[in-house]
Write a protein that binds this DNA or RNA. Structure first.
Lengths: 110, 110
DNA sequence: CTATTTTGCAACCAAAAGGTTTCATTTTAT
DNA sequence: ATAAAATGAAACCTTTTGGTTGCAAAATAG
């Protein structure tokens, strides 16, 4: 199934899962233990995360360790960064405006 | 209604709308003209975008111009960037590995 | 004034999302 | 061998999402 990273990170539970396993692998039950929803629900979220490549699963005996592979987030980063100039432009325009209003306080804080 | 920027950009049509109006305001019909779906469908997407602050609408006569306000994307940027160290770490580890394999070619491309 | 343009919104619909309970399977512990 | 643990997946349910058509209202053009 074609899974989209944008859609994957749209769900807050999935973002929490990512936060949880970003720096260490955890098995499915351990991840599920951190949420109020059922293990199956967490499992489904995990499946979506693996389908879009943000997580890989390593089997070890009867456990399956979920490991974050966050490289794919560059796709999000690239998309957002292309627009940074627009919001910076708006910020610059505001700054210019404020400078014209109070030219002597252009770096002031109060 | 509480709208989430992450959820707002999850839909590809909404990302296209953002691309379309990032550098110039367009009225609703003009935006809708760029898509295969109905004007109403585009209007609904636009509503979601305004509800989460990515777009503001300026009324001008009977037209309503939709203007991108992409500052809110910093929320996405911040979220992604906190994880950059993890994917960089993995990349560094790969690089280290390759360096050990072929120490003389550590910068080589062919 | 009347017709047209631009828009918002209600009503409705199908599919997807997110959740649950239940059951089967595999691995490990006793 | 049996029991327990960890997991995958099916079946089902409700809400949300993304879409449609149709209509009403406001502004503008003729």
């Amino acid at each position: 199934m074609r899974r989209d990273v944008f859609q994957a990170i749209a769900d807050p539970t999935r973002r929490e899962i990512i936060a949880l396993i970003a720096d260490r692998s955890l098995n499915v039950n351990a991840v599920a233990g951190n949420f109020d929803v059922s293990r199956t629900a967490v499992y489904k979220h995990m499946k979506i995360l693996t389908e879009c490549g943000l997580v890989v699963v390593r089997q070890q005996g009867r456990e399956r360790f979920c490991e974050a592979r966050l490289e794919r987030l560059h796709e999000i980063s690239d998309w957002v960064e292309q627009y940074r100039k627009f919001w910076n432009a708006r910020f610059d325009a505001l700054e210019d405006y404020l400078n014209k209003m109070e030219p002597k306080k252009k770096k002031g804080r109060g």
